[in-house]
């Protein structure tokens, strides 16, 4: 169980996360949804340790959370220039020599012996996802993982994540596209005003849209009429 209790993060006198509390159980895919700037990536960066929380605590199985417990895929990945996909994965596999690059590549179909510069943005994303899977850690955090992925790879990634969850891992995904989360998650947490406003279990997913867009729809109706005359 990944436990987040009353975590507050501030920088430059701005409260980025305000007393966030969340319980993320194992064998479960958790989704995090919210507007741009709501704090999704900030929460992931805090969990990984890139940002320090002012208060609260974060534990994994009742022990302090450490970075070697987490495999984190950021929204934008970094690749060294002039290296091939295979070299990128070999660097990551230093921590997990048992990762069979070629067998996994049968699922992703990447030209691993070509330079990463020649990859499209979708291929780079696939490579970054492979890198995260290569780390083989109990918690997997993916920030906007389905962006730029083709339909087939989306389908493959969902299957992989379901398998990982069945094997006891804890997975946390973020997205600003609701459908990408409802298709795979067991729980979805809504982050708004820098805190968790509501959590929905799978049977309640049909209520998320009306919860998110209730206020927004009346604002849109009011202004769109004026703007599009």
């Amino acid at each position: 169980m990944l436990s987040i209790k009353n975590v507050t993060v501030t920088y430059d006198n701005f409260i980025a996360l305000d007393k966030i509390s969340l319980q993320l159980g194992s064998n479960c895919i958790h989704g995090l949804i919210g507007q741009n700037g709501a704090g999704k990536t900030t929460l992931l960066n805090t969990l990984y340790g890139f940002l320090e929380s002012e208060s609260g605590n974060i534990t994994w199985n009742e022990q302090p959370l450490i970075t070697t417990d987490i495999a984190y895929l950021p929204a934008e990945s970094y690749f060294y220039p002039m290296i091939t996909g295979r070299e990128y994965l070999e660097l990551i596999c230093m921590n997990n020599p048992g990762f069979d690059i070629d067998s996994w590549n049968n699922l992703f179909n990447l030209p691993l012996d070509n330079l990463i510069e020649s990859y499209s943005s979708g291929m780079k994303k696939k490579l970054a996802v492979m890198g995260v899977l290569a780390l083989d850690r109990p918690i997997i955090m993916l920030d906007e993982p389905f962006n730029n992925l083709d339909i087939e790879t989306n389908h493959t990634l969902r299957a992989i994540l379901r398998k990982y969850v069945a094997n006891g891992k804890t997975i946390l995904l973020t997205s600003h596209v609701l459908e990408s989360l409802t298709a795979i998650c067991d729980q979805i947490h809504v982050i708004e005003n820098r805190t968790i406003q509501h959590s929905f279990n799978k049977p309640e997913f049909s209520e998320i849209e009306s919860y998110l867009f209730k206020k927004r729809d009346s604002l849109i109706d009011k202004n769109l009429e004026k703007l599009t005359k």
Partner: peptide, 12 residues
């Protein structure tokens, strides 16, 4: 350099 975070992410 821009690989500081990348190295941390892969445990180096």
């Amino acid at each position: 350099r821009k690989d500081n975070r990348f190295l941390q992410l892969i445990g180096i």
